[in-house]
Simulated assay, not measured.
Amino acid sequence: MSETSFTPGADTLRAYRDALGSFATGVTVVTTLTKNGPLAITVNSFTSVSMDPPLLLWCPDRSSLRHDAFVAAQRFSIHVLAEDQFDMAQHFALHGDGFTQDNWQLSPAQTPALRNPIARFDCRLYQVHPAGDHSIVLGEVTQVTSRPGNGLVFKRGQYGGFLQQP
C-alpha cells in the first residue's frame, strides 16, 4: 500500500476520518439523570486528564440531540464497556433512552449506573469548553467502581475485543 498525505479540509473529510479511525479506542457510555429520566450516549472520545485533581474528559458532538443535556449535567458517569457489551454500545449510540429495571440502577452519585461495565467513573462537572463541532466536557471523578475483564474496542468503524497474548 502506498502512503498518502493531505491537508484536512472539506474535500478530504473522509480521508481524515479514515486516518483517525486507525487509532483503536475503548468504548464508553456516558449517563446522566435528567428531569425526563436517565439519558445515555456512546462515546469513544474519552481520556484521563489529571491525577490531582482526578479529571477525565469526553467530547460530545454539538449536532447531537443529547449534547445540550450532557453539557448542562452537573453529574454524570462514564462506563468503560466490557467486550460482551456490544449491544449496549450500539443501542446508546443510536438512542439516549432504553433503560430498563434490568440494565441500570441509581449510583451513590445519583447518576444512572449501567450493569457490569469493567469500570465506572462517577463525576461532577468541572468545566466545558467549545471545540469546533464538539464540546470538551471535563469531569472531576468522585467515585470509581471497577472489575476485571476485557474492554470493548472500536477501530476503523468496527467493534471488537483486544487480542490477549499467551
Rank of each mutant, 00 (worst) to 15 (best):
A10T: 14
P117S: 13
S45D: 08
G26R: 01
F76C: 01
H95V: 08
S135D: 00
Y16H: 15
Q101V: 11
L152E: 07
L33M: 13
Q164M: 15
L163Q: 14
A19C: 15
G161V: 03
F23S: 09
D87Q: 08
A72R: 10
Q74G: 15
R147H: 09
W58H: 05
H67S: 00
E140H: 10
T42K: 02
Q85F: 08
W104G: 05
V49H: 11
S50N: 12
W58C: 02
M51K: 06
P130L: 09
L56M: 15
S5Q: 15
V71S: 06
V141C: 12
I41N: 00
A82C: 10
K35H: 12
F99N: 00
L39Y: 02
A10F: 13
A69N: 04
N103S: 06
F6T: 03
V30Y: 06
G157L: 10
S63Q: 08
V141M: 11
A24S: 14
G98W: 12
V27R: 09
F92H: 00
Q164D: 14
R66C: 04
M1L: 10
N36H: 03
L125H: 05
I136L: 15
K155V: 12
L138G: 03
R115F: 08
Y126F: 15
Y16M: 14
P38F: 03
H91P: 02
S146P: 03
A24K: 06
F70K: 00
N116P: 07
Q101E: 15
P117E: 05
T25Q: 12
D122G: 08
D61T: 03
P108V: 07
M51F: 12
N103E: 11
L56E: 05
S22Q: 15
F154E: 07
G149T: 02
V80P: 00
D61P: 00
K35R: 13
L81I: 11
F154D: 11
L106F: 09
I118G: 08
Q158F: 07
L56D: 06
Q110M: 11
F154G: 03
H79P: 09
D122V: 02
G139L: 11
R17V: 07
S63A: 12
S2Q: 14
D18M: 09
H129Q: 13
R147A: 14
Y126H: 15
L106V: 06
S48R: 08
Q90C: 12
A15R: 13
Q127A: 14
Q143M: 13
C59R: 06
D52V: 07
V153W: 13
L106K: 15
H95E: 13
A69K: 02
F86H: 14
L55C: 03
S5H: 10
G160Y: 05
A24Q: 08
A113T: 06
P53Y: 01
T145C: 08
E83P: 00
G151D: 04
L163C: 14
L13R: 14
H79I: 10
R120P: 00
G96T: 00
N44C: 11
L55H: 04
R75K: 12
A89W: 01
H95K: 10
L125W: 06
P108L: 04
T4A: 13
P60C: 00
I78S: 07
P108I: 03
P166K: 11
Y16E: 10
S22L: 10
A69H: 01
A40N: 04
S146K: 10
A72V: 01
N36Y: 04
D87S: 15
V27S: 13
R66I: 09
T28F: 13
D18P: 07
H67W: 03
F46D: 06
V30D: 11
D52W: 05
